[in-house]
Simulated scan of single mutants.
Amino acid sequence: MNGCQQPKQQSFFQQMTKAEQQAFLQELKSDYRQILIDYFTTDKTLKEKIDKFINAVFCANIPVPQIIEIHMELIDEFSKQLKLEGRSDETLLDYRLTLIDILAHLCELYRRSLLK
């Protein structure tokens, strides 16, 4: 977690058009979906995926409620799919840990950026 590659990149999300914002959020959502899928596996690239996601969120200055919204949308999609398959969605409660982990990484990145 090194922070933004380009300091001027901070808050570029707010300067995007609505269409660009939607495309960027869809990309973040796709990245986060993969993190959720891999979170309880032995995927050796999970740490890098989390770091990439956190760096993108940090550099774009995405508000934390937006991250929570992405998480909730994906969990809702997973829940609907499990119900369609006749399976319990109870295990999805464990994925709160993923959100906590992501937010902890983001807090650490913000903390480090303030120390510079």
Rank of each mutant, 00 (worst) to 15 (best):
Y39K: 15
R96T: 07
S11L: 12
A104T: 13
C59P: 00
F12L: 14
E48R: 15
N2H: 06
R96S: 09
Q14V: 11
I67Q: 14
K80S: 04
D76C: 02
I50K: 03
K29D: 00
K18M: 12
Q15E: 08
R33K: 09
L99A: 07
L84S: 10
S30A: 15
K52S: 10
Q81G: 08
E69K: 09
V57M: 01
L28C: 08
I100W: 06
E77Q: 11
N61S: 14
I37W: 04
Q81W: 05
K49H: 15
L46Y: 03
I35E: 03
T45D: 12
F13P: 01
S113E: 01
F24I: 05
K47L: 10
Q22L: 14
P7L: 15
I67D: 06
R112M: 05
H105Y: 11
L28F: 01
Y39C: 15
K83C: 01
N55W: 02
L103M: 09
F53S: 00
L25F: 01
A56L: 12
F78S: 15
Y110H: 11
F40M: 06
C59N: 00
K29M: 01
A104C: 05
F58W: 06
E69V: 05
L93V: 11
S113L: 01
L82C: 04
E48T: 14
K18W: 13
A23S: 07
A104M: 12
T41R: 15
I68W: 11
Q21H: 02
D51Q: 14
Y39G: 12
A19D: 08
D51G: 09
E90G: 13
E85G: 11
T17H: 01
R96L: 12
Y39T: 13
R87L: 13
A56N: 10
I70M: 09
I100H: 05
F78Q: 15
E69R: 07
K44Y: 10
L99F: 08
P63K: 07
D101F: 08
E77K: 11
F12M: 14
V57I: 12
A60G: 08
Q21W: 04
F58L: 05
G86D: 08
Q10F: 15
I100Y: 09
S79R: 14
H105A: 08
Q14N: 05
I62L: 15
L99I: 08
T17C: 03
S113V: 01
K83P: 00
I37M: 09
I100G: 02
K83V: 11
S113C: 01
L97A: 12
D89V: 09
F24E: 07
D51L: 14
E77C: 05
I50V: 15
P63E: 03
K80H: 06
D43F: 11
C107F: 06
L109S: 00
